[in-house]
């Protein structure tokens, strides 16, 4: 049984690729056979975040156009046995992806025994974003606690509910999950930032993860090591929890409250 999960958001720069890379690693580390596909045609980036940019020979579009086999294009991760990356093409041809082409690649991955296929969606609501979500069984909607990100993700929820195969078949639709990134408990406590509860209420989604704002995310992307692999990071722990919840485990939310401060720190706001 294969599950296809789209990581999407509408708005750019909220952490889709960071999330795709970390969830893929987290699932693979739990022994699942995982493929993660970059749907951002023309703007390949997942390979950099995964640290395999120099090993890209063939890409997603090459496979679809029959210029290589899927096996040739899948890049095996050097850290995790069961993890494979399919890079986006850098072609400027927007029509390089097609519904049938994507279906063929997904079918081949399913036949090959992959248990999870993660589709890293591009920003926006154009073709790439549409194709990334079209065959999804589940969606991880990445949201920053900020007005434009929340509004755009609601637009994406509308598309998930109408422009996907599950929606067209009318068989229960795509299962949607909310993943909040760049969360700052301190700013939530002072009333400057929307809280988990606020975003959850506005969008009406269940929360699969809350990732705290942290400099660890930039360090991880600098190094090409998905942040979930940084053992000392709260971000890694938060992503690990999100992976557990995706697998159906019940894990309480962490890192959503400001750490308790001492008397003097409180007095002076330190």
């Amino acid at each position: 049984m294969t599950e296809i999960i789209v990581v999407t958001s509408g708005k750019g720069g909220v952490g889709k690729t960071t999330t795709s890379a970390s969830i893929a690693c987290g699932l693979a580390r739990r022994g699942k056979r995982v493929a993660v596909i970059d749907f951002d045609i023309g703007l390949r980036n997942l390979d950099l975040i995964m640290g395999c940019e120099r090993r890209v020979v063939y890409d997603f579009v090459n496979v679809i156009q029959g210029e290589c086999t899927l096996k040739q294009a899948l890049i095996k991760d050097k850290r995790l046995e069961n993890l494979f990356v399919l890079a986006a093409s850098q072609t400027r041809d927007k029509d390089a992806l097609s519904v049938e082409g994507v279906r063929r690649v997904l079918d081949e991955l399913i036949a090959d025994g992959f248990e999870y296929i993660l589709c890293d969606s591009p920003a926006g609501i154009e073709k790439g974003a549409h194709l990334a979500m079209y065959y999804a069984d589940r969606a991880v909607v990445v949201v920053n606690p900020e007005v434009s990100s929340v509004r755009d993700s609601d637009r994406i929820l509308g598309l998930l509910a109408s422009k996907t195969q599950h929606a067209e078949k009318g068989d229960g639709g795509v299962k949607e999950h909310l993943l909040l990134t760049r969360y700052s408990p301190r700013r939530v406590a002072t009333g400057e930032m929307l809280s988990v509860t606020d975003v959850k209420e506005i969008l009406g989604l269940d929360v699969v993860g809350v990732i705290p704002e942290s400099t660890d995310v930039l360090s991880a992307s600098n190094a090409g090591t998905p942040v979930i692999l940084n053992e000392n990071s709260d971000v890694a722990r938060a992503y690990e929890d999100a992976v557990a919840r995706l697998l159906g485990e019940s894990v309480p939310l962490r890192f959503i409250e400001e750490p308790k401060k001492g008397f003097f720190a409180r007095l002076f706001g330190g």
Binding site: E146, V147, G191, M193, L194, D198, E201
Partner: peptide, 9 residues
């Protein structure tokens, strides 16, 4: 300002 954001959204 979070409550303003919430209301607007």
């Amino acid at each position: 300002s979070a409550h303003v954001a919430k209301e607007r959204l």
